[in-house]
């Protein structure tokens, strides 16, 4: 609540009096501050969550660390701002954060009406439902008449209405401001079903009093391309954020990993040479150093490593690569070449 008010106040103040803030380049601003300000999920296992010591981990968190590594050669130079779904875009619009990496769905209205730009898709997701096993429900189509808990200010809230409407089913919705409150209410029995992105369902299920009592229904009712967001109009900054993701994908495709990046610097493969900056001046073209990709891979890793560590086999979530596998392996993750 405090945060919401603060964000809105900052938003108003910024839009009223601080027209100049938008004119300055975000990259210069970040360099001057000495750290990157990154909008993060306040607590979604695998994507953005602080541990007991206050260290942030997650797929989106590592994405911000990769940007910091590219700029500062130091992945710790990030300040994470936890944001609820309903505050996140205002925080970015107002300049409170430099980049938003908070499992946000890329939609046309968000891209065109909010003064924001999505730079890519770092996780292909889709909306699903979770129910208690003892309800005996095996398909989302059987949820006619159910009460559903959802988080407000999300695409989820809208897809939910669409899904029930297009299937001619009735439902009751209870919307909460944060993911945590939403799941707690579901866990307390306020709702029959809990809905969010499929990745979120698996992450939230870990928080349940008894995770085995709940099942995730097989239907995926929407496309949820999740990606990082920047303010509209600063193309240089958008390029950096966009190409940090592509560099991590290209690194995985070329077999460059955290462990072998130093060896790969001696590689004769021209694609690897261009990625790691031993040939060409691609880094300088976007405003960072030519060894930017080396820094990212050394400190954070390639996309595959980040995925496995946070949400894949190396994490409690155990999510399959599926759509998030490289295009060469039947997935959708595809990066334009560096040349």
């Amino acid at each position: 609540m405090k945060r919401a008010i603060a964000t809105i106040a900052v938003g108003l103040a910024a839009s009223l009096f601080a027209g100049a803030a938008f004119a300055q380049s975000t990259l210069n601003n970040v360099k001057q501050k000495g750290f990157l300000t990154c909008g993060s999920n306040p607590g979604l296992a695998g994507f953005g969550v602080p541990d007991a010591q206050g260290n942030w981990t997650g797929l989106d968190v590592d994405f911000c660390r990769a940007i910091a590594a590219a700029i500062f050669n130091d992945p710790t130079k990030v300040r994470f701002i936890p944001l609820s779904a309903k505050d996140r875009f205002t925080a970015l619009q107002s300049g409170e954060i430099d980049v938003l990496a908070r499992n946000s769905t890329w939609t046309m209205s968000r891209d065109t009406q909010l003064g924001l730009d999505f730079t890519g898709i770092n996780y292909y997701d889709g909306q699903g439902f979770m129910v208690r096993k003892k309800l005996g429900v095996s398909s989302a189509k059987e949820l006619n008449g159910a009460t559903v808990c959802t988080q407000q200010g999300t695409t989820t809230e809208l897809n939910l209405a669409d899904f029930f409407r297009s299937n001619n089913m009735k439902y009751e919705v209870v919307a909460f401001a944060t993911a945590d409150e939403t799941f707690k209410a579901y866990d307390a029995g306020r709702c029959d079903a809990f809905t969010t992105d499929a990745s979120g369902l698996y992450a939230e299920r870990l928080k349940a009093a008894n995770p085995d009592e709940h099942i995730v229904l097989p239907e995926i009712i929407s496309k949820e391309p999740l990606g990082p967001v920047v303010r509209h109009g600063d193309n240089q900054w958008a390029d950096i954020v966009r190409w940090v993701h592509f560099a991590m994908l290209n690194a995985e495709e070329l077999g460059v990993s955290k462990a072998n990046v130093d060896q790969q610097l001696k590689s004769e493969n021209p694609e690897i040479k261009r990625l790691l900056g031993t040939e060409g001046k691609f880094g300088e073209a976007i405003g960072v150093t030519n060894d930017w990709a080396v820094r990212i891979i050394k400190h954070v890793g390639n996309y595959g490593e980040v995925f496995e560590r946070n949400v894949g086999a190396g994490s409690p979530l155990k999510i399959q690569r599926g759509q998030n596998a490289l295009w060469t392996k039947g997935g959708l993750q595809y990066a334009p070449p560096i040349r």
Binding site: K86, F89, G153, A175
Partner: peptide
């Protein structure tokens, strides 16, 4: 909450 977020 919802309206602000959906419209921005």
């Amino acid at each position: 909450g919802t309206v602000l977020n959906q419209t921005g």
